[in-house]
């Protein structure tokens, strides 16, 4: 089955300079009761975004009138905690195509990659530069190019390269699917089972 493709993006960003954002903040457990993958974006960052009466909290960035864009930029250790893939679904469903941070939790990173949501890990310094740029000009853009594995701050031209597993890179660019790949090796799985 084909999966979502990511190649290149140029967009303004949404800054969230908080460290250790865990998946319970991204999507609280009480919203995990759906049995499909759709609609989780409505509850993205639910308890930071809405008060107990479901009114938007004015001080949260997603409710801010001028910050917008297809890239979320967050503090280090983003996505720690639970393995819920619903966190990646919620970010994607809300409309983000990539998350930039100086450090990602393992399981979240894998879940994001499996859903065409690109995790871009940058240095602490570069992360600060993005925050500085976007606070100076809320419409400041970044450009992310997966083929060359680079992220550029459009206004200043400052650029950094990022790492990605070459297999997952090929999957994102071509829309390849893990299950198709493993099933292409089905004979080897059966041989492995017989040899045990």
């Amino acid at each position: 089955m084909a999966t979502k493709i990511f190649k290149h993006i140029q967009t303004s960003v949404v800054p969230l300079p908080i460290e250790n954002i865990d998946t319970d903040q991204i999507i609280p457990a009480r919203f995990l009761k759906a049995t499909t993958r759709d609609g989780f974006g409505n509850n993205l960052f639910r308890d930071w975004r809405f008060d107990e009466n479901d009114n938007p909290k004015a001080d949260f960035v997603l409710n801010h009138p001028t910050f917008s864009g297809k890239v979320l930029v967050a503090g280090k250790n983003f996505g720690c905690g639970s393995s819920r893939e619903h966190a990646a679904w919620a970010i994607s469903d809300y409309g983000f195509d990539a998350v930039v941070s100086s450090f990602f939790a393992d399981i979240f990173k894998g879940n994001a990659l499996n859903n065409g949501l690109l995790p871009v890990q940058v240095s602490d310094d570069f992360l600060k530069k993005i925050f500085d740029a976007v606070y100076a000009d809320h419409k400041a853009e970044v450009e992310i190019d997966l083929e060359s594995q680079t992220i550029t701050i459009s206004s200043t031209g400052e650029k950094e390269s990022f790492e990605i597993n070459p297999y997952k890179k090929a999957c994102l660019i071509n829309g390849y699917d893990d299950i198709d790949y493993i099933l292409s090796q089905k004979g080897k799985i059966e041989e492995f089972e017989l040899a045990r």
Binding site: S83, E85, G110, N111, N114, D178, I179, I182
Partner: peptide, 17 residues
Amino acid sequence: GIGTSQVEQVLATQCLL
């Protein structure tokens, strides 16, 4: 621990990348 796409992967293949 694994995400749901990987749950599907293991259900389908008994293997994980």
